[in-house]
Design a protein around this nucleic acid. Structure first.
Lengths: 124, 124
DNA sequence: GAGTTGTACTATGATATTTAGTACAGTTTG
DNA sequence: CAAACTGTACTAAATATCATAGTACAACTC
């Protein structure tokens, strides 16, 4: 059973949370190439949101070449999705960059940062 | 001359960017305790935005006990602002945590992360 | 007294998000 | 074949957030 967490109280729009959730399922291998993804209407029902919101997320994923649709059948994961980790790595690198810059402004030492990373990496 | 960068094209609201900018000025020592901050109207004029937007930012900073106002005189930096770095550190720690988790999902090794941090920390 | 300060309103416009409902062509299933 | 599914494309409405515009008032400075 595939589960995606949504938090309506967050500022982040539902469709973005859904996209992030699906990307995560792909990266963690829970969704693989050519596998069919749950239908727009079924996903909406399962998450308790509007089908239009799901469709928006799927459309954007299709635009990013992570999903392709077969008329009348459904949506499937693309081959290209394998490279998601590579694209994601660039985004993550940017995350670390801005976080590090903020840490410097806050007067943190690099060893302090390393300790945090170590702690986060080891924890489950 | 104190400058704060605003980018209207960003998704982040102007008032939040302003708050971040002021916090940064405090943390870098460009604004110190009991120092008067530029008035609501003057700040608005200088940044080319509406006074109401500045007021919103100031009100939130006051709520966070980083500013206090003296009727008829203006707004000033609180003593408490000295501890901004400590609060900020907790937020930054959270940033590193989520980034590290995402990095793990993307299949990055901890050494890879350390290299990025090192690079970011050394660059200006 | 004139000009400044913060603060408190009302009102408006723009935009983004989400939901609701309807419709249609293609495919699968019974 | 017919019913039930698929993605897709609309219109419409409700809601929330953000930013702007304008006005007003009490307190303070010069």
């Amino acid at each position: 059973m595939i589960t995606i967490k949504l938090d309506k109280t967050l500022k982040m729009p539902i469709y973005e949370q859904l996209i992030a959730g699906i990307k995560n399922l792909i990266m963690t291998g829970k969704l693989h190439a050519h596998q069919q993804i749950i239908s727009v209407r079924a996903m909406a029902k399962e998450l308790g949101i509007n089908p239009n919101t799901v469709q928006k997320a799927y459309a954007l994923l299709k635009q990013d070449d992570l999903l392709y649709s077969v008329a009348g059948k459904g949506d499937f994961i693309t081959e290209n999705a394998v490279h998601l980790k590579d694209f994601k790595k660039d985004e993550i690198k940017e995350l670390f960059y801005t976080a590090t810059k903020q840490a410097q402004n806050a007067g943190m030492w690099i060893d302090e940062i390393f300790t945090i990373i170590d702690e986060a990496y080891s924890s489950n």
